[in-house]
Amino acid sequence: MVTIDQSDNIAAGTRRPLMDRIAERSGSDFLITLAGCVLAFLYLPIAVLIIFSFNESRTLTLPLQGFTLDWYSKMFSNADLLAAIGNSLYVATFAVSLTLVIGIPAAFALDRLSFPGKTVFRRLILMPIALPGVITGISMLNLFRVVGFNLSLETVILGHATALLAVTVTQIYARLQRLPRSMEEASADLGASPIQTFFFVTLPNIKAAIVGTALICFTLSFDEIPVTFFLTGRDNTLPMYIWSTLRRGITPEINAVGTIIILVSVVLIVFSVWLLHEPKKD
């Protein structure tokens, strides 16, 4: 009796962990498969985009027809497209500069200063991150109509800068929060005026975050449609140009543009990751 009981116990004791182990194993297998699918899901379209930029056929269908660089040469001889790229560079450059000039003091104010209406100010400035871009675009369009501004690339710049402000403020604010206040106090304690402290101590320490933010904002501006849609005049930015050709029909030329954009984006990411990691070792 006693021995049977014991063997029963031992059997029960080993059986349960075994079942658990099987469950855990199959759980892991399931997770690995799923993670693979997610990655495939994320990268398949990007692969498709790139592959078909080198495909001879005019239509984007399988099977592949043969290798060509025609779409790239077409792209580089397309004056409208090149003008659009130029416009986008112009808009992105100035929108990023403006958003930094306004956003960095705003992040500072939110982190360091106390003033009446701070909560309202924070909510207002962060609004565009949550609101549909269309609404930001339309409301600014209303403003420009009321004051009688003509729509142009410059109004687009104002629109982008406003929409990107939310991103800039969030990023810089997060960095400032991690910056010990005592560092700036130490600088003041050692005789530095607030302006000296900003340039000698604060700025060098948030530099990486600023460059990172600038890169993010640049890509966002370079890809922006909803705000641009309402605020642009006769000139097209690159995404607006692509948008309008898409409505006319699909051509692999777009894939060529896309491949170039992806290439530039990847270079920017690698650059920003390198920037954000290089100066700090801890």
Partner: peptide, 10 residues
């Protein structure tokens, strides 16, 4: 001042 967290400039 010598700060509690030293506040050295990294």
């Amino acid at each position: 001042m010598v700060f509690q967290d030293y506040a050295l400039f990294p």
